[in-house]
Design a protein around this nucleic acid. Structure first.
Lengths: 220, 220
DNA sequence: GCAACATTCTAATAATCGTTGGAATATGCG
DNA sequence: CGCATATTCCAACGATTATTAGAATGTTGC
């Protein structure tokens, strides 16, 4: 085979991955799946699309081997086919944040302070959480917490914060995180906590960002 | 604005990057640009496409802010708009190699031994090259060597190896590298060197892989 | 086996993308 | 200035892709 054709073949294969991540909805699905296994229906609801459309997009992701499906009773659970897929999503998002002014502007309008963490800051946060100097709360649905979460973080789903607010200390910093920089749950949680006079702040990281930085997760 | 619309906007922005890397030819152009600045015509020739088509693809990459253009006399030089773009290409290729069986099979057929390096091996290679225990040669065109290369590597373009073969020692290991795992220049170089009785082997890394592993380059 | 449900498949449409040819623009040189 | 070179713009086509609706498949629990 000619050198040219061989090369074409190789790049075409890689482009299969590129095509899979070229649709906004598929990226959203990948981010959701980075939070743990989910059924088609759950994914569709969270991404705000029809089940049929979600299924079609998942099929594309599956064809690119970025996700795997497993039937579990009446449901079919999808999950990322590897840690590296989560890392790829993080890389794409990072490059987009770095280079696309439009995205940066949009994010600044939505999230007042774009707190970027470096690995050192992440490590020291983990250490403070271990010692109990700060309380790290995971405000995602509990199933997502269960399938992997930041070390020393407590599960405190956004829906439950109102009722469980007295579980949180008033004399220590509370750090909330959710699915990642595009997720608004931690911001809502912080607003809620501040209303009640607690010292709360959010970080942009989700588990995928944490992992992509080379740090370990806890659980499942 | 509704939460849904806000999210859609964010993912759409990231998908701009995804769309940019969804075409095989654009990926090839990115890999070429990871070797250093190049003109439209040089890129077109190396990628085996029409100048017009190259220009069109470069326009897409530029719109996604993955590359930058600068006029330099009669030519327009394109370059990656950041190190992270090279890292994105490496990540995409790595995920593809990891998950796409077809790609792995194709690569195994072409390149007998797919030598994957970890960071430790890379460091020790660099150390050996520093001490002179092995001779690392960069077989890419000299302009690419000039715009950044592995530390302690010598430039020995594939075209010139035949004439310059006596510059290489017969009593030490010679390690050749080129543009990356998809590039065939190092394999050709090794074949040539072995014909002349030299102890040669190749590594899959190019400068982008090296950099993505967190290691420093030398030059320009 | 049948009902109920979750998911996928099929078909059809509109929108987008890759590619090509021809014309247009910008630069440097005589 | 006018010419050669390098690159981009424009228009057009055929090929994909996203999306939607409706039919079909597979699984569980009775």
């Amino acid at each position: 085979m000619s050198k040219r054709k061989t090369k074409d073949l190789l790049y075409e294969e890689v482009a299969r991955i590129g095509k899979a991540v070229s649709s906004p909805k598929r990226l959203e699905l990948l981010e959701l799946l980075a939070q743990g296994e989910k059924t088609v229906d759950a994914l569709a609801v969270e991404a705000g699309i029809d089940t049929k459309l979600a299924s079609a997009h998942l099929k594309v992701l599956k064809a690119a081997r970025l996700v795997e499906a497993q039937r579990d009773g009446r449901f079919i659970a999808y999950r990322l086919s590897g840690e590296d897929v989560g890392a790829l999503w993080v890389k794409l998002r990072t490059v987009a944040e770095e280079h696309l002014v439009e995205l940066r502007v949009a994010m600044e309008q939505i999230f007042a302070a774009p707190e970027k963490l470096d690995t050192e800051t992440r490590r020291s946060l983990m250490e403070k959480a271990r010692r109990g100097d700060v309380v790290v709360i995971d405000v995602r649905p509990s199933a997502e917490y269960a399938s992997g979460h930041l070390p020393f973080a407590r599960s405190m789903p956004l829906d439950e914060i109102r009722q469980r607010i007295k579980e949180l200390p008033a004399d220590r910093d509370i750090v909330a995180y959710c699915r990642g920089p595009f997720c608004m749950m931690s911001a809502e949680a912080v607003a809620l906590l501040k209303e009640h006079g607690l010292r709360a702040q959010k970080i942009a990281d989700g588990t995928a960002e944490w992992q992509a930085a080379g740090l370990p997760l806890a659980g499942p």
